[in-house]
């Protein structure tokens, strides 16, 4: 049983490490700020969950350690969308506009965010 738990938690740790690494590669491979935000989301959600669950299996069932890991888990999942949303809104207010793959099917960004910076108007990918 102990060996089984070890193997599962190791697999989770490795997979989580790979997810975090992929997210970090993503913020270099994606072309503009808004798409990079998606890559960062991978780390925030699945990467951290897998690593923290992997660690939970290694605690030896000590209650305080489990509670702390669960709190970190909950906290990351609750704050990361708030931070992403605040970041996206601030970027729109700052005049940044996402590069679009298919501008013809897209809707307009609401006007209340002000005028975009000149170089980021109508930027097709």
């Amino acid at each position: 049983m102990a060996i089984f738990l070890d193997v599962v938690s190791w697999a989770l740790l490795i997979l989580g490490g790979f997810m975090c690494f992929s997210g970090a590669v993503g913020i270099h491979r994606f072309p503009d700020f808004f798409s990079r935000m998606h890559a960062a989301g991978v780390t925030d959600t699945l990467g951290s969950s897998l690593i923290l669950i992997g660690l939970m299996l290694q605690t030896g069932w000590q209650a305080t350690v489990l509670v702390k890991l669960a709190l970190i888990f909950l906290f990351i999942l609750l704050t990361s969308p708030t931070a992403s949303h605040a970041l996206a809104k601030a970027a729109l207010h700052g005049g940044l506009r996402p590069k679009l793959g298919k501008p013809e099917v897209s809707d307009e960004i609401p006007e209340k965010f002000g005028k975009p910076r000149s170089e980021s108007v109508n930027n097709q990918l």
């Binding site: 997810m19 590669v25 993503g26 890559a39 991978v42 793959g101 960004i109 990918l125």
Partner: peptide, 26 residues
């Protein structure tokens, strides 16, 4: 849902920027 969409995004990260075509929708 998060797990499923994560797999999608990871795939796109490794396929490179050509695999994405971002859209804005209301």
């Amino acid at each position: 849902e998060i797990v499923q969409s994560n797999i999608q995004v990871i795939k796109r990260i490794w396929l490179g920027p050509k695999s994405i075509s971002p859209v804005v929708m209301q």
